[in-house]
Write a protein that binds this DNA or RNA. Structure first.
Lengths: 338, 338
DNA sequence: ATAAAAATCCAAAACGTTTCGGATTTTGTT
DNA sequence: AACAAAATCCGAAACGTTTTGGATTTTTAT
């Protein structure tokens, strides 16, 4: 493995000069710089980032800390798309990304801060963390720069990216209302998710603005799980037969509701209209295809990485990035659309 | 950031002793070791892996090199599941994983070897690489330990994990034959995939053993793409109306064939039976649900990581790992199954 | 009590890079 | 020609570890 020292010897200069030549400093003659570059290429040199990181005290590496990257979680590829987005930006600016997964065999009893410091990441992106997760506490206290996805905490070292969940939910419900629905139920996620709170708010606002009453008993907790949502939908539909539409806080839960409707022999969308949230791949493949509020998860990852690295390099204007959502109308709300 | 030196000072010993105490060497008194551990905890010490990696000349980090981790590729979550599996094993043995994506903005004109050496990964896992990919050449020549997924190359430093694609394809086709189909078409992937070759072989073997003739013109190239498969299926069905069943080398292509059948007004499975390969999430959500040969992609990632790290630590028996596949019978081949 | 053996400790070098402060050479000005 | 200024180079220290080869102390055996 050739080092800077080998190059120095071959070029007949000091290692200082080699370093400065390769890093584009101006106090080295252009002729010798060319020679050094040439030799470096010949010797097939590649810099040792460990050594560099050690002396510069930064690694040009960011950590992506996700929660629940298990075999089962792959159905909902939210995590994956975010990851792909992060990866995209990171590779554009020549950083690296290392993946930390928290729940996987929790025996890894390292704290968030330890993980980051040990692996010398310059900063971290956190995805899928719950509001009550102990990690979250640490983040705010530690001084490691990080950006959160879908959790609105801001400080000197903390930023976040999210979508406008209030507006997103509102658009979904307004869509249902515009179709003539008056008794709309909602299947929400669990209480420890910030987005759940927001989407409920959007749900209420849409009803209010349309002059419709809000009924607490038409909102159920689906815990972001397909089966759970199915059960709740069955319960709601039997207890409140006036319901003609469902707004679900995730597509996965909407799938559960679709199952429930089928079990109860209700036709979609004629008897029950269903709209989800996320726009996962599955959404366009179900029968009928699922209407939903699309979040650009790839963009969320991309923007999170961008924000983090801007923060690291001290050129972040704001620590907050809020993305748009898009209403996708498919056949679970409107028959024979398109 | 506290270092080993700080601990040494606080404990009144040399840094050598601190290092050896913390790393469990036997030539340090148990009493002083306890004291050192205590102090380290108090000072909230975490080791600097950069420094350690520098001197030990290894980083306890492996690279996952994937091809085509783009926004679009998320439909087929093969990559993601492999990644989750790799991550799982890696975190069990306290390694780290850094992700390299090749196609994303190809401007990153670094070679495979450069990438690995620069980031000081101890080894790499390659997924989604085509047989004709320039990277592949490098791997065999470089001396960086690596394991390939679904490409059977073996050497001192190279291993691979794959599934038994011949047998898998055979099982799929035997299933179709057992249902009475005699005119079976195959939609294969592109020619630069090793698995395509294998699956074709399995297709032929199954026909042969059942005493059925193999017809070249019933095999089409779907390039692993949904749309392409759809077109080919339409062509085949119109040119060869005797076809009653399709074996597809991927689920994504099977989806295309399903669309084709629907367009042509053919009922599934009564008029056309379809079986895929992979068992992607979508497979169980289509109407009708898709029969397929399931590959445990998570396990592939897990085993790849395991193999690689065993190779790195010099305790790999074999450099080859071949996993089982499983026939999943759903309604695209058998009506009202279950 | 003494020598040998075992246990416990440590100084210094090494890993490959960046950077500080200054040294040397070249160029420009008069 | 002489000096100042600019351009170009370099030695040595530093980053935080591990490890080598030995030094020192304690224990054991006689």
């Amino acid at each position: 493995m050739t080092t800077i020292k080998d190059i120095a010897k071959a070029a007949g200069v000091s290692i200082t000069t080699v370093s400065r030549a390769l890093n584009g400093y101006s106090d080295v003659n252009e002729k010798t710089r060319q020679k050094i570059i040439e030799i470096a290429k010949q010797l097939n040199y590649s810099p040792n980032t460990l050594a560099r990181g050690l002396v510069m005290n930064k690694s040009k590496t960011i950590g992506l800390l996700v929660s629940g990257l298990t075999r089962e979680s792959t159905k909902d590829n939210f995590t994956f798309e975010v990851l792909a987005g992060v990866n995209q930006y990171v590779s554009e600016v020549d950083y690296d990304m290392v993946l930390f997964s928290t729940t996987s065999t929790k025996q890894r009893e390292k704290t968030y801060t330890q993980l980051c410091r040990e692996r010398r990441v310059d900063g971290a992106i956190l995805q899928g963390i719950r509001v009550d997760d102990p990690y979250l506490q640490e983040v705010v206290e530690s001084n490691i720069p990080c950006v959160l996805i879908d959790i609105p905490i801001e400080s000197e070292t903390v930023g976040y990216v999210t979508t406008d969940n209030v507006l997103g939910a509102k658009k979904a419900v307004q869509h249902l209302i515009s179709l003539g629905h008056r008794h709309i139920a909602m299947i929400n996620g669990y209480e420890f998710a910030f987005v759940s709170e927001q989407r409920l708010k959007g749900f209420q606002e849409a009803l209010f603005e349309a002059g419709l009453p809000f009924h607490e008993h038409l909102v159920a907790n689906g815990a972001f799980k397909e089966e759970r949502a199915e059960q709740e939908a069955v319960r709601l539909l039997t207890q409140h037969p006036e319901i003609t539409a469902f707004f679900c806080a995730s597509d996965l839960m909407a799938l559960g509701v679709m199952k429930a409707a089928k079990t109860l022999g209700k036709r979609i969308p004629e008897e029950i209209a269903i709209i989800g949230y996320d726009d996962i791949i599955l959404a366009s493949y179900t029968t009928p295809p699922l209407s939903t509020i699309a979040q650009n998860k790839f963009a969320m990852g991309y923007e999170a990485a961008k924000l983090l690295i801007e923060m690291l390099e001290g050129k972040a204007q704001s620590h907050i990035k809020i993305l748009e959502t898009e209403l996708k109308i498919r056949e679970s709300t409107v028959k024979n659309h398109g």
